[in-house]
Design a protein around this nucleic acid. Structure first.
Lengths: 196, 196
DNA sequence: ACCTGAACACCGTTCAAGT
DNA sequence: ACCTGAACACCGTTCAAGT
């Protein structure tokens, strides 16, 4: 279920066998990244795709390039979700609903979580993935800040790191994720004045 | 700065060269685990310690056994901190101060964070490390719950996972850690009624 | 232009052979 | 009892040789 090549429109047309190989590699990568997480063996991916490991490396120079190609469409999907959610909910709820979506994606695909976490860490942050996600999220955060729905001083990076971290420690149990995210959003501490 | 062998009092006395090797391995492991995190190369550790890799594997059967030996005393230290803190602060503050300490340890030693995270995940949870830490933390949590200082239903595992996760995504910047932990404790959401 | 097999420099783990 | 060197089955990456 990976689109053949989302950003391969540029450049000269590829040979038919090269296109087939590329698609086979992506297909195999999806399965093994799902099973083994971010450091699935490239060798095994190549084997399952029925190509030599050298072929994999020429299509995707380095681990990271493969991850980006695999999760490219899922990141676009998360950006689209931001727009859709923004239209349906008030600022604070929208931001939080979107972050919960991201957490679910990250918990279901540890490799995606690892990819994004690296991007957040980069001070450069000029990565394509973070760029798109960052713009989508910043809109939601700005609206929330304007509505006074988040703690002052909270950055988008803070929030993305938090949900990523929570997703990473929860082992696929989506009930756990929801509980920990709730704690993060509402605070683990009992509010001092509960009934005003 | 690793005690020679904290749980080697049991069993027959070891040969002098074996003791020296064991100590050298631990020393090297401390350095390389600090530099490379949880999956530092065992081979490189053995090399730096000046022993064959087979020797390392006989002293410590598997990656995990080495991690446990290295961080044994640091875990005891965290347990001791729990007692000390409990005597000085009211329930809620004590719990939170202790969790902040743990986060700092985990952020400074990613390998320690990885070791603990595995223990939290284990449903068995009969691990020595988690056992001691769990008992120490549960006391603090029970006191806090009795004082109504934490959200009802929060478990110790929730809290340990959260601080571990936060520590893991913060790259050694202790200011970042403090900010994210604060969000976790107080909630990222702006409380609805702020001035009662 | 693209693929392949082989090579290189690494892993973690195990085991027979030594003292 | 303990250590060693060699072996085994893996990695990721690169490169010359093929079509």
């Amino acid at each position: 279920m990976v689109r053949a090549a989302s950003n391969s429109d540029a450049g000269p047309p590829r040979r038919a066998d090269a296109q087939r190989n590329r698609a086979a590699i992506l297909e195999a990568a999806v399965e093994l990244l799902h099973r083994d997480g971010a450091n699935a063996s490239l060798e095994e991916i190549a084997r399952r795709a029925g190509v030599g490991s050298a072929t994999l490396h020429r299509h995707f120079r380095g681990h990271r390039a493969l991850l980006e190609a695999v999760f490219d469409d899922r990141i676009e999907q998360m950006c689209a979700e931001a727009e859709r959610i923004a239209e349906q909910w008030p600022a604070g709820e929208a931001l939080w609903a979107w972050l919960r979506h991201i957490a679910q994606h990250c918990a279901a695909e540890k490799a995606l979580a690892a990819l994004l976490r690296n991007d957040y860490g980069d001070t450069g942050a000029q990565n394509r993935s973070f760029g798109a996600l960052g713009r989508a999220g910043q809109k939601l955060l700005d609206r929330s800040a304007a509505a006074d729905a988040v703690q002052p001083g909270v950055t988008l990076k803070d929030l993305l790191l938090l949900v990523n971290a929570v997703a990473d420690v929860c082992s696929d149990n989506s009930a756990d994720i929801d509980r920990l995210l709730d704690l993060t959003w509402n605070g683990a501490r009992r509010p001092i004045a509960t009934n005003c």
